[in-house]
């Protein structure tokens, strides 16, 4: 039974591709709008051979990584502060709770007004999307730190600074890591909005250009590249997360 499952699992994607190829070439659909996987593969190969793939990939990766890193640092820092100090929380939490539910994509128009089509605007959008998720998870994580651990640490003479650095931060880490992982997919989602809003390179930019030229194969190849990139990022993050909070 288990073997059968593995066998069927291994056949899942090839079967899907074969069905797609058959339908696309059957004449039921317009092949220009619905090209078979073989044509998509050729388009991707061409993309890679021209060297454009690497500059597009590099541009998108740079935006995601930089925006994510900045958003994560700001989110964890402010989340720990609002989680730990009621005064800071009273000052900032109401503001964050008002801004957080606004979908980050809705900020595209104002980002264009502020930053034009510059890189800074794209980083800002990714940062904005990542920040609130990470902030909330760090804030909740700090508040959910096992009170018993804090009492035990207090009884052992742990000073405030070490309490925050060692006990609170590590105690909140499982929550923070979950927030960061959610933010990985959010950063790709905001990347799409940022590149669609106007860019000069990037995977989503390439998809948009290909769409305007009716290169549907290239559009689908771009989607596949984006999906793969997001998938690999998530898997990598899951592995790192597992090693960071190994005691769970």
């Amino acid at each position: 039974m288990r073997r059968l499952n593995i066998l069927i699992g291994a056949l899942s994607i090839p079967l899907f591709l074969a069905a797609w190829e058959a339908i696309a070439r059957s004449g039921i659909v317009n092949m220009v709008l619905f090209p078979p996987p073989s044509i998509v593969a050729v388009a991707v190969l061409e993309w890679v051979r021209s060297g454009q793939f690497f500059s597009d990939f590099g541009a998108s990766l740079y935006r995601v990584v930089t925006g994510f890193t900045l958003g994560a640092i700001a989110g964890v820092t402010l989340g720990v502060l609002t989680g730990q100090f009621p005064l800071v929380s009273s000052l900032l939490s109401p503001l964050f709770h008002i801004l957080r539910p606004i979908p980050p994509i809705a900020f595209v128009p104002i980002v264009i007004l502020w930053f034009g089509l510059s890189e800074a605007g794209k980083l800002f959008l990714v940062f904005w999307g990542v920040f609130f998720t990470v902030w909330l998870s760090a804030h909740i994580g700090v508040q959910k730190v096992d009170r018993g651990l804090i009492r035990a640490a207090l009884m052992l003479g742990t000073p405030r600074r070490q309490m925050l650095q060692e006990i609170v931060l590590l105690g909140a880490l499982p929550y923070i890591v979950v927030g960061l992982r959610t933010a990985v997919s959010i950063s790709f989602y905001t990347l799409v909005a940022a590149e669609l809003a106007g860019a000069f390179s990037g995977i989503v930019y390439r998809i948009e250009i290909a769409q305007q030229n009716l290169q549907t194969g290239q559009v689908m190849g771009g989607l596949a590249a984006l999906g793969l990139m997001s998938f690999v990022a998530d898997r990598m993050f899951a592995t790192v997360a597992e090693r960071t909070v190994w005691w769970r």
């Binding site: 035990a152 003479g157 000073p159």
Partner: peptide, 24 residues
């Protein structure tokens, strides 16, 4: 103080749990 639950620091080894107080 010793509590009903051990409340050991889960990310520290036995040795580092015990060494925590003296370090602090």
């Amino acid at each position: 103080m010793v509590f009903q639950q051990p409340h050991l620091f889960p990310w520290k080894s036995v040795r580092r749990n015990i060494a925590h107080g003296p370090r602090m």
